[in-house]
Amino acid sequence: MTQNLVKAWTAAKQRLTDGGIDSPVIDARLLLEAAADASRIDIVTDPYRELTPEQTATLDGYVERRLRREPVSHILGRKGFWKVMLSVNNQVLTPRPDTEVIVDLVLKRTTEHQAFNLLDLGVGSGAIILSILAERPAAKGLGIDISSEALAVARENAANLDLNNQVALLRGDWTGGLADENFDIVVSNPPYIATDEIETLEPEVRDHEPRLALDGGADGLDPYRILAPEILRVLKPGGLFAVEIGHTQSKDVEALFTAAGGLDVWTIKDLSDRDRVVTGTKKPLET
């Protein structure tokens, strides 16, 4: 039976609702847009446009995958973040709006034509560093990740955004091999889920995102114990740092960065009013 855009959307929404998917309306629309090569405006202004049999079959396949709790970002191979569109797969975390808090902070602390050196530790898809560099053309960035597969995704995104001349992407273990006091800004979204909590996560995360990017050790704080002193080591005097945290980890992570020598260490909340980013500075040089 021939389907049009509005009927296909309605049917997909119902299937996802019946399957217990949390966001059936948005997910159905995104899958339909991709399957039918349609835009949101097309669905509203031309709702009776018919799908080809191939488009209908593609949409059915997408919906089946979503019902198996595969993330929409993996089904489509892309995810919007801040003002950019990123390629993603199961080798990187799907970028989330919570992480945009870091981007917003850095952009507010810098000016459009300011030149600075930015370091992103655990760069993943490149979401943070590329979103910043896209709006700061005079800045340069280095992204480091231990995963070669993640770096391949970041390199694809850098190329797609025409940022190859601003960013270098290297395989490494956090700050290993980096010189002291070399960066004006350091950012990171490290693994921060406690090991025994991973099995309690939603299937979209537990079964489809890399454990390497999730597992923060027994209490979720292992990466911060490494990062706090190392970030302060590679920051220039007066430099800014910002790290994403789990919403219950603010006091512990603040204490680690304060003990490492961070100044004005505090926590920024996300749009859901949860603690999300610990930030601070390195003591400036005496004048």
Rank of each mutant, 00 (worst) to 15 (best):
Q3P: 01
Q3K: 09
N4H: 15
N4V: 05
L5T: 00
V6T: 04
W9G: 03
W9D: 02
A11E: 14
K13D: 03
R15M: 09
G20C: 13
I21Q: 12
D22Q: 15
I26C: 02
D27R: 02
L31Q: 11
A34N: 09
A34T: 00
A36M: 05
S39A: 09
Y48R: 14
E50M: 09
E50C: 06
L51H: 05
T52N: 07
P53D: 09
T56V: 10
T56E: 14
D60M: 05
D60I: 03
V63Q: 08
E64S: 14
R66A: 09
R68P: 03
P71Q: 04
P71R: 10
V72N: 10
S73M: 10
H74E: 10
L76K: 08
L76A: 12
R78P: 01
V84P: 00
V84Y: 04
M85E: 15
N89Q: 05
Q91G: 02
L93H: 09
D98G: 06
D98C: 01
E100N: 06
I102K: 11
L105C: 08
L105M: 12
V106E: 04
V106P: 08
L107Y: 00
T111V: 13
L118A: 08
L118W: 06
L119Y: 08
G122T: 03
G126T: 01
G126Y: 07
I128F: 07
L130Y: 07
L130D: 08
I132Q: 11
L133P: 11
R136A: 05
A139I: 06
K140Y: 07
G141K: 00
D145A: 12
S148F: 00
E149Q: 13
V153I: 11
V153P: 02
E156W: 04
E156P: 01
Q166W: 07
A168L: 14
L169R: 05
L170W: 07
G172I: 04
D173A: 13
A179I: 04
E181H: 05
N182Q: 15
F183V: 07
F183L: 09
I185R: 06
N189T: 05
P190I: 02
E199A: 14
E199S: 14
T200W: 13
V205S: 08
G216K: 01
R225E: 11
I226R: 12
I226C: 03
L227Q: 00
I231E: 02
I231H: 00
I231M: 10
L235Q: 04
G239T: 02
L240H: 03
L240M: 04
A242E: 11
A242L: 11
G246F: 08
T248L: 02
D252S: 13
D252T: 00
V253K: 02
V253S: 04
A259V: 09
A260S: 10
L263E: 14
L263V: 14
D264Q: 14
I268H: 14
I268R: 15
L271M: 13
R274F: 11
T281D: 01
T281M: 12
L285H: 04
L285E: 12
